[in-house]
Simulated assay, not measured.
Amino acid sequence: MTLLLVALGAAVGAPVRYLTDRAVQARHDSVFPWGTFAVNVLGCLLLGFLVALPADGGLMALAGTGFCGALTTYSTFGYETVRLAETGARPAAVLNVVASIGAGLGAAWTGMVLAQALL
């Protein structure tokens, strides 16, 4: 049953990631990967919120592992950062690393605080 919940969450998270990435990136005319940045920060916020809720294995499998796992993308973050550096956009590559880590940690903390405030 857990595997089915993870697969269901991932089946929703992957298309949401793709559509969100494309929508965000289409609004920016820069080399910075705003779409990937947005989905990763959003995923951190949601996962932070989920882990602060009372334990529910089914919800965590569906929304945490499945949805957030498919929504966020470390591999694309890594690839885009390397491509920025290789194409001479090193300041953007460094900004991507620093901003992604900082915003991701901040979003996870914010999600936890929001969940605790609602409990």
Rank of each mutant, 00 (worst) to 15 (best):
T2C: 01
T2A: 11
L3M: 15
L3T: 15
L4I: 15
L5S: 13
L5F: 14
V6F: 12
A7I: 13
A7C: 14
L8W: 11
L8Q: 11
G9T: 08
G9P: 07
G9K: 04
A10Y: 10
A10R: 07
A11M: 14
V12F: 15
V12S: 09
V12N: 06
G13K: 01
G13H: 10
V16L: 05
V16D: 05
R17P: 03
R17S: 00
R17Q: 00
Y18E: 07
L19I: 01
L19S: 03
T20F: 09
R22T: 12
R22M: 14
A23R: 10
A23I: 00
Q25N: 07
Q25C: 05
A26C: 07
A26W: 02
R27W: 04
H28N: 10
H28Y: 15
H28C: 13
D29M: 11
D29E: 14
S30D: 15
V31L: 04
F32A: 09
F32K: 10
P33I: 02
W34I: 03
G35A: 10
G35I: 02
A38Q: 00
A38I: 01
N40S: 10
N40C: 08
N40A: 11
L42E: 05
L42R: 02
G43C: 07
C44H: 04
C44S: 06
L45S: 04
L46S: 10
L47E: 03
L47Q: 03
L47M: 14
L50G: 13
L50D: 04
L50N: 11
L53N: 09
P54I: 07
P54F: 00
D56Y: 03
D56C: 01
D56E: 08
G57Q: 06
G57A: 09
G57S: 01
L59N: 02
L59C: 04
L62R: 03
A63W: 12
A63L: 14
A63Y: 04
T65V: 15
G66M: 10
G66P: 01
F67R: 01
F67H: 05
C68S: 09
C68D: 06
C68I: 07
A70Q: 01
A70I: 07
T73R: 00
T73Q: 00
Y74I: 14
Y74P: 09
S75C: 01
S75K: 02
T76V: 09
T76R: 08
T76W: 07
E80Y: 07
T81W: 00
V82E: 10
R83I: 12
A85Q: 13
A85P: 13
E86I: 01
T87G: 12
G88I: 00
G88L: 05
A89I: 05
A89P: 03
A89M: 03
A89C: 06
R90V: 15
P91K: 11
V94Y: 03
V94D: 04
V94Q: 02
V94R: 09
N96V: 08
V97H: 06
V97R: 03
V97Y: 04
V97K: 06
V98H: 07
A99L: 15
A99W: 10
I101D: 05
A103W: 02
G104W: 09
L105F: 15
L105K: 09
G106R: 11
A107T: 05
A107E: 01
A108N: 08
A108M: 14
A108I: 12
T110P: 06
G111K: 04
V113N: 10
L114Y: 12
A115E: 02
A117E: 12
A117T: 11
L118E: 11
L119T: 14
L119Y: 08
